[in-house]
Design a protein around this nucleic acid. Structure first.
Lengths: 133, 133
DNA sequence: AATGAACTTGCAACATTGTTGCATTTGACA
DNA sequence: TGTCAAATGCAACAATGTTGCAAGTTCATT
């Protein structure tokens, strides 16, 4: 699926910022930060535009945001899996990379009476395979 | 357990900021934000002092930080339960309150080969009992 | 192709959150 | 009470994110 198709599918205008942003995320295949995206993105977009693009894409469930820490936010393409199910994320303390664990099921947590769950964010922090000595 | 005792137990100096901060968190009995703490805290401490106090208290496992969103961070007292086990948090979209779900067990997620989990953050977002019509 | 309405962008200004270095003050303990 | 390490307040700065508005684009329709 190409960036242009995604935008068309959602009736969003095809602008170079949105298209570039999506291209970078498609290419990356894992969650990356705003700065990483900017480094990979040809052209120099205003921060405002960037944030507004993120917002639009997120509202349309095209991308999703992963808040690892208040100072470390990443974005990733949403796919059929991430779209339908909640899924866990892994953050590596060594290499600081974030991964979507699509294949890891997020157990439905039994909540006390009266609570209605709408979304669920799971972030597991530790050491990833690549960083294990 | 009073604020003073907690500080002594951890060999931390008893300063009015730390003591007040802990008093407010003990009183609140649920996670609250920096601004909420400040509103409840007599005296007017510098932001720097506040942040450094949070850091110290967190490093000593006296409090823990819950990042609901990059723009919404709360702090809560750590207790025996939260200290020993991972626990889930609930964020209500209506009243914007955060709760520690001490009694809700966080399932140990089976990770793919090679991943080592050290911490796990679970935030469930939805509607809390009080906000249900 | 040209038009036009609606949407998107860039800019300036601002708000919030968090950090660092340094001089001053405070707490703990002899 | 004096001493020293630790904590605080201040100033300056950095990063992240938002808003209003003027100018530029996109896209469907002539």
């Amino acid at each position: 699926m190409k960036a242009i198709d995604i935008l068309n599918q959602h009736n969003l205008k095809r602008t170079s910022c949105r298209e570039g942003l999506l291209d970078v995320l498609i290419e990356a295949q894992r969650p990356i930060s705003e700065n990483q995206i900017r480094a990979l993105l040809p052209g120099n977009y205003d921060r405002t535009t960037f944030y507004r693009s993120f917002k639009t894409l997120e509202e349309n469930n095209i991308i999703h945001k992963i808040v690892v820490d208040s100072q470390f936010v990443t974005y990733a393409l949403a796919n059929e899996i991430t779209h339908r199910h909640n899924h866990a994320h892994f953050y590596c303390h060594e290499c600081h990379k974030v991964q979507c664990l699509d294949e890891v099921p997020v157990m439905s947590t039994p909540l006390p009476e009266g609570y209605e769950a709408l979304e669920k964010e799971v972030i597991i922090k530790g050491i990833c395979p690549e960083c294990h000595a």
